[in-house]
């Protein structure tokens, strides 16, 4: 009855948002960047047994300029924090961040002078994954959730590039 009946087979109707989001989530290129223990589990997720290629994500980019997903895998020390911030700034938009593990999310068991208490103090985070370190299944779950989140976005949205949490002054 509707318009769809009259269009030829080779034409599909959709929305711009859907197509853009679908293509963004289907070949997301993570940034090959490991900090600590969680990085080993991240490599395990990319390797043979868990095989992240199933989600179109096996291409690890060693350069931030070619990546659109940053997985902060491990504790961020105060010395590393400016480097992480800089790497994030170098990534082209749109970009997403997964904070993998307790240390990256909130400092974990290390509440001390050397460790940044959560990477969300310096960069905005989309998905937090608990665990110390999270199992590869947990990381995959986080990635699938990120995919779902990407599908709800709109190309008109303005993305935040600054963290929401208050940055405390040291000492």
């Amino acid at each position: 009855m509707g318009l769809e009946e009259n269009i030829p087979d080779s034409i599909i109707l959709t929305t711009v948002d859907y197509v853009v989001n679908w293509s963004r989530k289907s070949s997301m290129w993570p940034f090959g960047f490991g900090l600590a223990c969680c990085a080993i589990e991240m490599i395990a997720t990319f390797a043979a047994h868990f095989d992240l290629a199933r989600f179109g994500m096996e291409v690890m980019r060693p350069s931030p300029r070619q990546a659109d997903l940053m997985i902060v895998a491990g504790r961020v020390s105060n010395k590393m924090a400016p480097v992480v911030k800089r790497l994030y700034d170098q990534m082209p938009n749109p970009k997403w961040v997964i904070s993998m593990g307790a240390c990256a999310s909130c400092g974990g068991i290390f509440n001390n002078y050397a460790i940044l208490q959560g990477v969300d103090r310096i960069i905005p985070v989309d998905i937090y994954i608990p665990g110390c370190p999270p199992r590869p299944e947990q990381l995959i779950d986080g990635i699938v959730r990120l995919h779902k989140k990407v599908m709800t976005e709109s190309v008109k949205d303005k993305r935040e590039t600054q963290p929401q949490r208050i940055v405390s002054k040291k000492g």
Binding site: A36, G74, S77, N78, M80, V83, A114, I115
Partner: peptide, 8 residues
């Protein structure tokens, strides 16, 4: 760059 202060 990964100083964690474990000893302290």
């Amino acid at each position: 760059y990964l100083h964690t202060g474990i000893e302290k």
